[in-house]
């Protein structure tokens, strides 16, 4: 039970690091190549997408550990 709790926290943290890293990379590819000033809103747009999709999925999907 305890290991399951810790494993969920650690995996959630690692997934977040991967997601943020991917968001930064994609923003660089998608927005910063067009204009460097679009980088910050670009990262935010990607992270909001990740956040809302994750929360919507875990709240309403048939599988609660969906990201």
């Amino acid at each position: 039970m305890q290991s399951s709790y810790i494993a969920n926290i650690i995996s959630g943290g690692l997934i977040a690091l991967v997601n943020i890293s991917v968001a930064v990379s994609v923003a660089a590819l998608l927005f910063a190549q067009t204009d460097q000033r679009l980088m910050v809103p670009g990262i935010a747009i990607l992270l909001i997408g990740t956040l809302v999709t994750g929360l919507g999925g875990t709240r309403f999907s048939g599988y609660k550990a969906v990201v």
């Binding site: 969920n8 650690i10 997934i15 875990t58 550990a65």
Partner: peptide
């Protein structure tokens, strides 16, 4: 090991 909502 993330198999629950806690991970999300």
């Amino acid at each position: 090991g993330g198999k629950d909502r806690l991970m999300v």
